[in-house]
Computed example of a mutant assay.
Amino acid sequence: MKRLLMASALAVMAPALANAHFLLQYTENTMIERPGEVPVKLAFWHPMDNGPVMDLALPEAFYVIHRGERTDLLDTLQPVTFTSPVNSGAAFNGTVPVRRSGDYILVTVPQPYFDETEEIYIQQITKAFLNRNQIPTDWDQALGLPAEILPMTKPYNVIAGSSFTGRVLADGQPVPHAEIEVEYMAALPQMDRAEVSEPVVGPMPGGAIVIKSDANGYFSFAVPRAGHWGFAALGVGPQTEHDGVELSQDAVIWVRAWDMQ
């Protein structure tokens, strides 16, 4: 009976949440002061609605770029359960070695996920950023990913009330008129346990926030409050099919906004 009720709740929520999937690469801090192993949680979730969790399979790739050098982090991942108020799903905890000063760009290339409500596969190639000692090194460099958002604004210390600008790329080329969903992490994952914190805002009226890139792939968004903001350019990657089924190969970027003190 409990499973039946849960399935019914997900079915009711599906139309509103179908376009709000976001792959998280969450760290409690983006500005790192001391060298060490920084914990990171990978989860596939609806963070603005604090809604359903989707099971995340072991990624195809998980690595960090620092001063142009790539370090594979796949062997740091340990399976865990991630729980929202709606359900629980498979996720991973990992670590990122932060030693020298500069930027650390986290990249996850997940396995395609089959969304039964939309009857398509989704693959969200995701970037997030850490920095040590406030010395910028890599944040403005394209990585040559199949689907990628290149930040035009330094992504780990955006000022709340200002704007974030990015450029949508596919295999290094600009993507004109891309549809981009914007998501706020209303509740925060807890690194030492399965659940999330209490949400600080509720879902937006009208559903997902959507903006478009211009003819040269650029977009801007006025960031209204501090916290973690995600941007997902939908279906911009060159791969459009997986196992004979439609694939949406998305580019996701997470940025951190701060209030001025």
Results as ranks from 00 to 15, higher is better:
Glu37Lys: 07
Pro205Gly: 05
Val255Tyr: 08
Val98Trp: 02
Ala57Asp: 13
Asn131Cys: 09
Leu74Thr: 05
Ser163Gly: 06
Met191Ala: 02
Lys127Arg: 04
Leu4Tyr: 15
Phe129Lys: 01
Lys212Met: 08
Thr95Arg: 11
Tyr121Ala: 03
Leu23Glu: 04
His177Phe: 11
Tyr184Val: 12
Val223Cys: 05
Glu118Ala: 08
Thr117Lys: 01
Val64Leu: 02
Lys154Val: 09
Tyr113Val: 13
Asp214Lys: 09
Ile211Cys: 01
Gln25Val: 05
Ile65Arg: 05
Gly230Pro: 02
Phe221Asp: 00
Pro205Lys: 07
Glu179Leu: 00
Asp138His: 03
Ile159Gln: 15
Thr71Glu: 01
Pro52Arg: 15
Gly207His: 01
Tyr184Ile: 12
Val98Tyr: 08
Met152Gly: 14
Glu198Gly: 10
Leu188Lys: 13
Val109Gln: 07
Asp55Leu: 06
Ser84Tyr: 10
Asn216Met: 06
Val109Ala: 09
Trp258Arg: 14
Asn216Arg: 06
Ala43Ser: 10
Tyr156Ile: 02
Met260Gln: 14
Ala142Asp: 09
Gly166Phe: 06
Pro174Gln: 02
Leu106Asp: 05
Glu241Thr: 11
Ser88Ile: 03
Ala90Ile: 12
His242Phe: 12
Ala186Val: 09
Glu241Met: 09
Leu58Met: 13
Ala61Arg: 11
Pro59Gly: 09
Ile211Arg: 05
Val236Cys: 05
Leu169Thr: 03
Ile159Ser: 14
